[in-house]
């Protein structure tokens, strides 16, 4: 155990020593990986924001059931029960005539002045049936609507089908776009790293030969390089994540004048934890894999 520990300590110390004596190659490798991860971080940041935005909108998808002013309490309860029991409905809310007027005032600020002249409140009371977000929302909306049309007490049933379909399509597009971007980034990573690896092998070839000649096992030779690969991957991921967060904030302060909706769509939230971890994992695995490939060929015995 203590032998293992002192081996590990040697790996770390030697990796640090190697970094000090070849700062150029190591910095180049880390910077290359960091800039690729930075680019990936920006892409993921936008994907995350678009997704969050779409999901928020999706949570707002609802069917509105307007009631006749003359509807009895009994009819109202019946409609509420029917809505709650419909598949695909997550929540049902009642909106009184007064709340409806309130909302109208709030959303049409300048037009609200007209309201006192209207005399009696012309807006109907209604139920709002919120739909379970997801691909089934549009179908659920259709079936809820058709089952309620013509029911006593119901004046009208409304929902924005076109909007729903558009939302579904955008979600699918966002997912496909994210996957395509991830694939593109990954291929760039592989290409760039292959080049840097070749450089690293070249810088280390001579000392690897010497180590093997004085009796080092390939494992002993590889240890420090692998530790260094892990460290470079972690450092690169950290730099990438910090830079993409910094760019997000920079964008927010710079885009103050731009339409709020656009800014919110791409940059209102920091990178999701899931994607942050993904970047770290990609950084570490690429760093380790590159070190492994570099040192494996060079440390093979005759």
């Amino acid at each position: 155990m203590s032998a293992l520990l002192s081996r590990l300590r040697y790996f770390v110390a030697d990796a640090a020593d190697e970094w000090r004596s070849n700062p150029g190659v190591n910095a180049l490798a880390t910077a290359t990986l960091a800039s690729v991860l930075f680019a990936a971080g920006l892409v993921l940041l936008v994907v995350d924001n678009v997704r969050v935005r779409l999901e928020t909108w999706q949570r707002d998808v609802r069917v509105e059931v307007y009631l006749e002013d003359s509807a009895t309490d009994e009819a109202r309860d019946g409609i509420r029960r029917r809505l709650s029991a419909s598949p695909g409905v997550s929540r049902v809310a009642f909106v009184t005539k007064e709340e409806a007027l309130d909302r109208f005032r709030r959303s049409f600020g300048s037009l609200a002045d007209l309201v006192p002249e209207l005399g009696e409140n012309p807006l109907p009371q209604s139920f709002e049936a919120f739909l379970v977000p997801g691909a089934g929302a549009a179908a659920a909306a259709r079936s809820v609507a058709s089952s309620l049309r013509g029911v006593p007490g119901v004046e009208d049933v409304r929902f924005d089908l076109e909007w729903l379909d558009r939302l579904d399509a955008s979600l699918r597009l966002a997912r496909a776009g994210g996957a395509a971007a991830a694939l593109a980034v990954l291929s760039v990573v592989v290409l760039v790293i292959a080049g840097v690896v070749r450089l690293a092998v070249h810088a280390r070839r001579e000392e690897i030969d010497v180590m093997l000649l004085v009796g080092a096992s390939p494992a002993l030779v590889r240890g420090p390089f692998l530790v260094s690969g892990v460290a470079q991957g972690l450092a690169a991921a950290t730099i990438g994540i910090v830079l993409s967060e910094a760019s997000r904030r920079l964008f927010l302060s710079w885009a103050k004048a731009a339409p709020r909706a656009v800014v919110d769509l791409v940059a209102s939230q920091p990178l999701s934890l899931r994607h942050g971890l993904l970047l770290a994992a990609v950084g570490v695995s690429v760093g380790t894999a590159a070190a492994w490939v570099a040192v494996r060929r060079a440390s093979r015995l005759p």
Partner: peptide, 12 residues
């Protein structure tokens, strides 16, 4: 082994 060209590790 003492190598004719020494073979020392340059960074150590």
């Amino acid at each position: 082994v003492v190598f004719q060209d020494f073979k020392l590790i340059r960074r150590k």
